[in-house]
Structures are given as structure tokens and as C-alpha cells.
């Protein structure tokens, strides 16, 4: 099977304006993936499915991943020659920048016909708040139907072109997207036998301390 670099080259040749890049996967598994821009997502998916060398007819898994805003340190090293004629000094300049967060949808594609895979496709949204639309790949692979609904339900990615986009695991009146990293659960605290850490902090909010005076009545916990 072709490597991700070869597939990327063929895709760029076939769709000249498309944004296709290879995302390297560190670690022993070495499952590198193709990052594809939303504009050409559907066309690229159809190409991958119908191309005779790839024939990726089986979309095994469609997942969402939530990446929060994070601080990234860029290190730029410049070589400064020593005016006195000694060895050159290497000066490192570290700049911190804020990489905005995004939601990511990862597709794992295999070929049942040619028995190869996986080819991993990724699409990223613009940000986590308003630019959360991505093309749906359900018209290409039917197996994405429920999985994209799940990503919509739990992460909030809106898939354009999905035949039936509504919540699948939570009830329809639910408002949040629970799998996001910044989801806060409703405050429903019960008794814990040995609270510690942030559970202890939560306990202190709900169970107030005893009054020093003996005559003070016990306070009811907030329901």
C-alpha cells in the first residue's frame, strides 16, 4: 500500500487547491495521517474510495477529539559569529504563542477489497465556538452516519450534508457537549467516605464546617 506521503502527492496532483498535509504520528505505532481541509473533504473521500489502487471502501471508525487552546513554545536558534574569532555562539530565542483550540474528526479507512489499511483522514474545525462545520462523509461511507451523529452530540461538530443530524446518545433537550474537555458536570454532590484533592474542595462547598459554639444548629447541605 502507498505511504501517506505518496497519497498526499497524488491528492495534491488531483485536487490542486486542496489543503492536504501529512501529520506524523510519534511513537511505535507509526500510524501517520492525512490532514485534509474542509473544503475538499468530500471530494477527497470519494477519490480515496474509488481510486483503483486504494479502494478504501470501509470506514471503520469516525472519532472526535477536542483540543483546547494551548501555549506552544517556538524555539528559534541563530548562530552568531564571534567577532574575536572564537567559535560561533548559538543563541536560542524562545517565543510563546497561543495555539487556538479546535475540534478534530479522525476517520480510519480500510479496504475490504484489497485487504489493506489503515489510511487515516483528519479534518479540523476553525475553532471551538462558532466555526464548527465540517463536511459529512456519510454520503461516501454509510458507516459514518451514526458515528458523525455521535460526534455532533458529544463534541458539537456540525456536519453539513448529513442526512439526519440530531443527538444520538443524550436526550434532545440536552444543551451541552459532554465530551469536550471543558465540560462541567451539574453540581450534584453526594457523601464520599474519604474525600481528598478536588473532591475534598467540592465537599467543603457542600458540607459547611461546624460552628465553634455548641448551641449552633446543624446546617442542611444544599440540595
Amino acid at each position: 500500500m502507498e505511504t501517506p506521503d505518496q497519497i498526499r502527492d497524488r491528492l495534491l496532483a488531483r485536487f490542486p487547491g486542496a489543503a492536504v498535509a501529512v501529520v506524523a504520528n510519534p511513537g511505535p505505532a507509526a500510524q501517520h495521517s492525512l490532514l485534509v481541509g474542509g473544503a475538499h473533504g468530500r471530494a477527497i473521500a470519494e477519490f480515496l474510495r474509488d481510486d483503483p489502487a486504494l479502494r478504501l471502501d470501509f470506514c471503520s471508525n469516525a472519532t472526535g477529539v477536542d483540543w483546547l487552546d494551548r501555549e506552544v513554545t517556538d524555539v528559534a536558534s541563530t548562530t552568531v559569529p564571534d567577532p574575536a574569532g572564537g567559535p560561533a555562539k548559538v543563541v536560542e530565542q524562545k517565543t510563546k504563542r497561543l495555539q487556538p483550540g479546535y475540534l478534530e474528526v479522525v476517520y480510519h479507512l480500510f479496504s475490504m477489497e484489497l485487504r489493506h489499511g489503515p489510511v487515516i483522514l483528519r479534518m479540523r474545525t476553525g475553532n471551538r465556538s462558532d466555526k464548527v462545520t465540517l463536511p459529512s462523509l456519510t454520503p461516501v461511507w454509510r458507516s459514518c452516519e451514526f458515528q458523525e451523529r455521535e460526534v455532533f452530540d458529544l463534541y458539537g461538530v456540525v456536519f453539513s450534508g448529513h442526512p439526519d443530524l440530531r443527538r444520538i446518545l443524550m436526550w434532545d433537550e440536552f444543551k451541552d457537549h459532554p465530551m469536550r474537555k471543558d465540560y462541567a458536570e451539574p453540581d450534584d454532590y453526594e457523601w464520599e467516605p474519604t474525600p481528598h484533592g478536588d473532591v475534598l474542595a467540592k465537599a467543603k462547598l457542600h458540607y459547611p464546617a461546624a460552628e465553634p459554639a455548641a448551641a449552633a444548629p446543624k446546617e442542611e447541605p444544599k440540595p
Binding site: N25, P26, G27, P28, A29, Q31, S60, P118
Partner: peptide, 9 residues
């Protein structure tokens, strides 16, 4: 585990 990702089935 070292940083990275895997899909295994």
C-alpha cells in the same frame, strides 16, 4: 505511553 496515537482492532 509515549506521545502518539494508535487504532488497533
Amino acid at each position: 505511553a509515549k506521545p502518539g496515537e494508535v487504532y488497533s482492532r
